[in-house]
Amino acid sequence: MTAATMTGRPIRPSHAKRDMALLGVALVVVWAAVTVSIDPLKALELPGGIGLVFYKMFLEEGPDWSYLPKATSGMVESLQMAWIGTAIGALLSLPLGFFGAKNVSSGLASNIMRQILNAIRAFPEIILAIAIMIPLAGLGPVAGALALGLHSVGTLGKLTAEVIEGIDPGPVEAARASGARPIQIQRWGVLPQVLPEIVAFWLYRFEINIRAGAVLGVVGAGGIGFSLQQTLAFHRYPLAGTAIIVVVVATIVVDTASGWVRRRIIEGAGGRSAVESAEAMNSPLRADSAG
């Protein structure tokens, strides 16, 4: 110890704060694991049980392809719900996002708007569906689309406001200096800067809404969720297998297409050349095995 200080070496700083935090987290985890009402024997059955269901869905008789048309139309309904929900969210959240941005609207107005958006966001789609939209629109996909739409207003509005707050203030100042009216400043000084990113968020929200829409079917708000719930509840596993394949394929196709468009929007029309894409796959960590 004294030798170390003599040579000018620093003393190892204590990590007491960090260690206490880690210990606290560990205690909470142990508490949760001990008190959760799970029979350990049943936990051991889980992998086998999942394997058996998987076997019944896809292997025993194979998925039942006669269910394909019904599953597909359910999935199309889910996609339409997600689309309408996203469109509602996009169109309403754009102006609300402007009101919620500190640098565009006033401090007080933006604060109030942000709180409203936060409050909307806090309610999951499923609660919006059962408490408001199903009474209003009846059981069916319209209620689902409206629930997705309302929740999307909250999430997209917050993101839009955050993007607007992050803009380069230069063009806004230039527009103001040239005597532009407030609405003109927004149209020519702000919107061109933020639109690509906001449209990318819309597409991303669409991907999320497809997944969220599956939930709503379970409570009767339309889409593939209803088929999934019914087939599994009545142990019609080959039918459920078909429905799951439809969900996975449709979701991956939409994710891939949407991801491609999003990258194009953000990176500009040029995109990456084939050579650049190939080079992006090179990693210094793999260089040894190549050479």
Binding site: T7, G8, R9, P10, R12, P13
Partner: peptide, 15 residues
């Protein structure tokens, strides 16, 4: 490692 830091005179920044 400490000796190496001492040789280049930045040992006081070790942590």
């Amino acid at each position: 490692a400490m000796r190496a830091l001492e040789r280049v005179d930045v040992v006081e920044k070790a942590y």
